[in-house]
Computed example of a mutant assay.
Amino acid sequence: MKRTCHIDLLICDCDGVLVDSEILSERIMREALSAHVPLAELEVLLHGTFGLQSRDILARVETHFAIRLPHDFHAQHLLRCEALIRSQVQVIPGVHAALHSIDLPLAIASNGRYQAVEHALLRCELSERVDVGIFAAEQVERPKPAPDLYLLAAKTAGVAPQRCLVVEDSVTGVTAALAAGMQVIGFLGASHIPPEHAENLRQLGVEHLIEDMRELPALVERLCYAEPAEVQP
């Protein structure tokens, strides 16, 4: 009997899922902000903020420390991040083989800027595998944690949200994907992921977690062909 796949589209976040860029962005932000606020207190505030847009993180910093950062701080931060990512970002180990083993169309949904995501994918030789498109923060009115980016990707592909499978690393991204009505795999293998993060994602309702991209093809296969009642964590 021929099996029926229940997933029609794979959607991946970029930073921290396909490329190990979050650690670079965090380093640049920490170094730049340490000139304006106490570093020890800043470390506590920044903990777990990955996945948020940098503008939202800076707003938290201004509110917490009751300061006003220079008017061009955000723009300069983006320029420094994008320059560093273009020259240094590395692909997550195992991503190439994993994505080419999965027989599903692929879209990218990122809170980053389109050009930055495009350059990261080009540097890491992933662009050719992305056959549905890149969906970035400036394309929607409300980026993650709102579901808009994921819904836009599904609509563009002509796929119902419930037939989409998302790979995400952050609370922000998982919140967005679940709000879109999509099934989510939590990825814990990037260098910026703290030890307690698995439990954070479980509390949001993520049932399937992986630490190595080599685990992804088999899990996607299982989720694709399992009836909803059969899928277990």
Rank of each mutant, 00 (worst) to 15 (best):
L204Q: 03
P195K: 00
I193V: 15
A198R: 08
P194T: 04
L216C: 09
L209Y: 07
I210C: 09
D212K: 06
H192T: 02
E221I: 01
H208R: 10
E221T: 12
H208A: 02
P194M: 04
L216R: 00
H208N: 11
G205T: 08
L201V: 08
M213Q: 11
H197T: 06
R202A: 10
L201H: 06
N200Q: 15
E207I: 01
I193G: 00
L216D: 05
P195R: 03
H197E: 00
E196H: 14
V220A: 05
E196D: 15
H208G: 00
V206A: 09
H192I: 04
V220E: 12
L209I: 08
L219Y: 05
Q203N: 14
P194C: 10
G205I: 09
A198L: 05
E196R: 14
E221H: 15
H197V: 07
P195Y: 02
E211L: 05
E207P: 02
E221L: 12
G205H: 03
E199A: 15
V220L: 03
H208I: 06
E221S: 13
H197F: 09
E215G: 05
M213F: 12
N200K: 15
A218V: 11
E199Q: 15
E207N: 13
E207M: 13
H197A: 07
M213S: 11
E196T: 13
V220Q: 09
L219A: 06
E207A: 15
I210H: 07
E199H: 13
I210N: 07
E215L: 04
P194H: 01
L216T: 03
E211N: 11
M213H: 11
L219H: 05
P194V: 10
L209D: 09
L216I: 05
E207D: 11
H192L: 02
